[in-house]
Computed example of a mutant assay.
Amino acid sequence: MRLIEDILKNNYETVSIIGLAKNAGKTVALNYLIEEAENNNINIGITSTGRDGENTDLVTQTQKPSVYVREGMYAATAKKTLLLSDAKTEILETTGISTPMGEVIIVKIRQGGNIQIAGPVNVTDMKYVAGRLKHFGAQIVFIDGAIDRKAVSSPAATDACIMATGAVLSRDMKKVIEKTAHAVECYTLKQTTDEIKRIVSKKNKTCIILHDGSVIVPEIKTSITGGKKISELIDENAACVFVKGAVTTALLKDLWENKYLRGIEVIIEDGTKLFTDINVWNEMRQKGLKVVTLNSINVVAVTLNPVSPAGYFFDSALFRESMERHIPAVKIVDVVSGGDAE
């Protein structure tokens, strides 16, 4: 089954595309999905949390592929980007949402062509815009996510996520596979129980849940800097620890110093909140660190770009086969060389 069919079959209406690095093939993946949607008569909408579709990356100054939209599609983008696009559009609605490129506007594509897209930057506005695209007729909304705005792929914002990875991450294929597998592991951590979710939702703060169901809330400003104080409150009565917000390597190290943590679960909001060193993470996991989430993320595919803008590239077949061995539970799609499997 092809990727676009997988998405439709699972009733995913809003799907984010997240690049694990700049130039990992995110735009290529988006263009591939646009073409696949047209071939399967699926009406889609697109938007972005950053700015995409420009010919040259504004940060790295490398050439970028354009976003090519087809007649009948929908897009949500900032006003100024429409002036830089050659696709012909019909304005359906103004949203009142401001960006550095102007107000976000909902448009329908009347004549295919290249387009630049720059949409909302926060989850609340993104959910609204995705809802409006669906209102006008989009069966699936694809959100081009910026590398520094991973929250758009959280369950609070989208139904599912596609990860774009590639040779740009490292000249060493093994390192690219390791980094990608780590990201997939973090995003797909299993969920905690409904009872724990209920307890956490009442507090909505970093807290320690005891075996008797009572809760201790540490007096900390943020979890990032409060690791040691949290750790001091964990004893034999603790059943699990919920950490609200970002979870860093330093925070995990502070918690790991407490011997009682070995027998309990650390609960996080979702995988987008993890900002951990791969080596430290793997070592702690091997020693028994248990991490679960309030909400798991549906990673429907990992897309591969075997070519780096720096001029080197991987053997496409070997890259795909190796990635499939290390991440067997997720669909792997080489959007540059091989496309999607039937």
Rank of each mutant, 00 (worst) to 15 (best):
R2M: 09
I7H: 01
L8C: 07
L8P: 01
K9N: 03
N10P: 04
N10D: 15
E13W: 12
I18P: 03
G19Q: 00
G19H: 01
A21L: 09
K22N: 04
K22S: 10
N23E: 01
G25P: 09
N39F: 10
I44D: 01
I46R: 04
S48F: 01
S48C: 12
G50T: 12
G50H: 14
E54A: 13
N55D: 08
T56Y: 12
D57Y: 10
T60L: 10
T62C: 09
T62I: 02
Q63T: 14
K64E: 03
P65I: 13
P65M: 11
Y68G: 04
R70T: 15
G72D: 00
A78P: 02
L83S: 15
L83P: 03
L84G: 07
S85K: 08
T89V: 14
T89E: 14
L92V: 11
E93N: 06
S98P: 01
G102P: 05
K108T: 11
I109K: 00
R110F: 02
G112H: 09
I117T: 06
N122K: 10
A130G: 11
K134S: 11
K134Q: 15
A138M: 06
A138S: 13
A138Y: 10
F142G: 00
V152H: 11
S154V: 04
P155T: 11
C161W: 02
M163V: 15
A167V: 11
L169S: 02
S170D: 12
M173W: 11
K174Q: 02
T180G: 02
A183C: 00
C186M: 07
C186D: 07
C186W: 03
T188M: 09
Q191S: 10
T193P: 06
V200Q: 00
S201T: 12
K202T: 14
N204Y: 03
N204R: 05
K205F: 05
C207F: 08
I208R: 07
L210A: 11
H211I: 12
H211Y: 15
E219S: 08
K221R: 13
T222A: 09
K228M: 07
I234A: 15
E236Q: 14
N237F: 12
V241W: 01
V243L: 07
K244H: 08
A246P: 00
K253I: 05
D254H: 12
Y260L: 05
R262N: 11
V266I: 15
I268F: 00
E269D: 11
T272I: 12
F275I: 08
E283C: 00
Q286I: 07
L289Y: 02
V291S: 03
V292Y: 01
V292I: 12
A310P: 01
G311D: 06
G311H: 09
F314Y: 13
S316E: 15
L318G: 08
R320E: 15
R325M: 13
P328I: 01
A329I: 00
A329R: 01
K331F: 07
I332M: 11
I332K: 04
V333S: 01
V335L: 04
S337A: 14
E342W: 15
